[in-house]
Design a protein around this nucleic acid. Sequence first.
DNA 1: AATGAATGAGATTTCATTCAT
DNA 2: GATGAATGAAATCTCATTCAT
Lengths: 217, 217, 217, 217
Amino acid sequence: MDTHAPQRHLRSWQRRKQARPGEILESALAVFAEKGFAAARMEDIAARAGVTKGTIYLYFPSKEEVFKSLAREHVSRSLLFATEQAEKFEGTVFDFLRHFYAGFMGLVLNSDVAVLPKIIIGEAGNFPELARFWREEVIEKATGMMSGVFTRAIARGEIRDLPAELVAKLAMAPILMCLVWRTTFEKTSDRAFDYDAFLATHCDVFFKGLAPEGSAS
Amino acid sequence: MDTHAPQRHLRSWQRRKQARPGEILESALAVFAEKGFAAARMEDIAARAGVTKGTIYLYFPSKEEVFKSLAREHVSRSLLFATEQAEKFEGTVFDFLRHFYAGFMGLVLNSDVAVLPKIIIGEAGNFPELARFWREEVIEKATGMMSGVFTRAIARGEIRDLPAELVAKLAMAPILMCLVWRTTFEKTSDRAFDYDAFLATHCDVFFKGLAPEGSAS
Amino acid sequence: MDTHAPQRHLRSWQRRKQARPGEILESALAVFAEKGFAAARMEDIAARAGVTKGTIYLYFPSKEEVFKSLAREHVSRSLLFATEQAEKFEGTVFDFLRHFYAGFMGLVLNSDVAVLPKIIIGEAGNFPELARFWREEVIEKATGMMSGVFTRAIARGEIRDLPAELVAKLAMAPILMCLVWRTTFEKTSDRAFDYDAFLATHCDVFFKGLAPEGSAS
Amino acid sequence: MDTHAPQRHLRSWQRRKQARPGEILESALAVFAEKGFAAARMEDIAARAGVTKGTIYLYFPSKEEVFKSLAREHVSRSLLFATEQAEKFEGTVFDFLRHFYAGFMGLVLNSDVAVLPKIIIGEAGNFPELARFWREEVIEKATGMMSGVFTRAIARGEIRDLPAELVAKLAMAPILMCLVWRTTFEKTSDRAFDYDAFLATHCDVFFKGLAPEGSAS
DNA sequence: AATGAATGAGATTTCATTCAT
DNA sequence: GATGAATGAAATCTCATTCAT
């Protein structure tokens, strides 16, 4: 009984079972971020997820596949965020960017996703397909979305006529810097990096630099 | 001249011995960049340097020490470059930055040093002391140098009154992006990233954004 | 009885796990005895224990620790034997010694513990702490026990008044000779060493030498 | 010139050359004694002899051969000593033994030969031929010499009628104990072992034990 | 004769993966 | 479904031995 309705009235271990892959990936994210792919031990990942080594193999065929699943899984989240942001694009490009940066900082500071780019950077050499996947699925899509924003802004005369794609990349460079700082140097530093002030200054300079000639800013 | 040269009259194997550590580090740079620390095999490093495993241990006590030597060794080169650039600072801050970016691109595109930051990013978790070392010796010094440049520019009225340190970091964000692109995604991409155009656009926007209010740019 | 036995209802691999360390140490005893510490290969130890290299590392962190565990583990057995013997001391010191020698020969000829002293002798240079441990825990305790026996024998007038501790050491010298012969030369010799006759002659001479002046022996 | 008289008027490096093998063996004795065969490094042996690794191979084809040469070389010294002693045998067996023990203690305390038996004990498993060689060349010859002494003593009525060979072995057991103590435990002990008192007590007991019945000792 | 840089076989140790329970 | 003992391939590192100088 209940065999026909596996989603309803699940017993606790059944709920557990469905949650397992997610728990494992979450744990893997933390461990890969800390150690890199090669130095991460399956046992660490398992322990942090509250299971034993063997259990991971019930859900993933290999360490490599855990890693890839992880990378792919989070792509969707990141893109979802970006897309949502882009859809909210109603006001000026400046409003949008401020919103975007603010949202991103929330992500960067409060979750573990921030470490994914770092992992990709560190392991691109060992997993070229993954690097390609990320470029195509994350970077180019995000750049494309952002390019669209700037293209429209140019069309509306909100900003100067500049190569939209390059401007899109420029808009993301400070974010990359924040990510790298947070995942690489923050722990070793006693003086805090003021991400908000950094991005505020960026907006100040960047927006003024984009503004049409003769505008009162 | 050259009478002070200490390597005169060396036997061939002595000349060899003096050159070995450098050859090994050069080889290690390439292998670590490609694979990361953990996945790099001593045998690979040795083979690329034209020696066998055992030889590396004549010059370095362990893989870890090869890695650390490498990271420390190249710091001097990078800083030398930065310091030389700062000393050339004669014209406006804009001239300086253009010069700086151009010089950096030369470095990034034509040598292997570009991969060092990538290595540091990937292995910071496993070598915290190394991350600290890099932050203190490379990043903070470079930032300090750049901050000085901007502080003077502000004093001279060349640019607006903005937090010099944050502006310095903003000035380096596009460089970080170029480095990451080159070392992480370039190989997987068929469409070339136009670093020069990217930095030109950056200069365009950045300089206009920094310019004093009401300036004719 | 046996209701307190902790191993009831164990699954087979649990029973196995409990037995493993002992099996490994037993195997290690044999291999270390044959080759010495440095020349003993983990693979040999593993093979003799019926497992593979890796398994040893589930129970011991390193080869050195296997060795130390081994040396420490068997101490208890040896001392237990000695203590039991000393407690049986009821008759004359001569009866006791005869008993002691007989018991020791049983140990020497029928078990592998005989090789432990040999191992200690061979590796004292490489493991000074171990040599110290053995001197304190085995040699001095055994000597102390034996000294006590002789002290009491002197007090009772069974033997002459001699330095008890030196006599104790003299009593053990023939045993050392038997151990060394058995573990070092026996295999290379075609003519058997007659341990019983050797110890019988020793008793004959030793007892007569200890007897009080003017005794009819 | 001088080619026909290589022994006379040697230049210093020639004298050196002739001394080299001996210097190396002396050095090897110390290192093998400290570490055992396997753990002894050729570099250590070379360094202690004041040469470099390569030089050893000019005189010995392998580490094993250094070891064997060492063991064989010292055999002659030990036997020479024993034979000389036996030839001095003029007085009673008791005088002889006292002399012998005294001489042996000089050897044990003042030279490195004491470590040879220890080495043999530790490496017998790895070099069975060596163990055999030692048993035959050293132990059996020494025992034979000593047996002869006792046989003659029995014939003269100096001591009781006992199995001469076993008595010979008993006479050497305390020496073995001294050797083992000195090479294995002495360094770890703060309280000195009084070899002289030990052997004096041994003589006291042993001689009394050997004395013919009814003798006034 | 002596050197010492280089070699490479072989040892220890780690850890992803398997599988009986 | 979960466990965790066991495996064994692969990595680091050591050091006896060689050989050009």
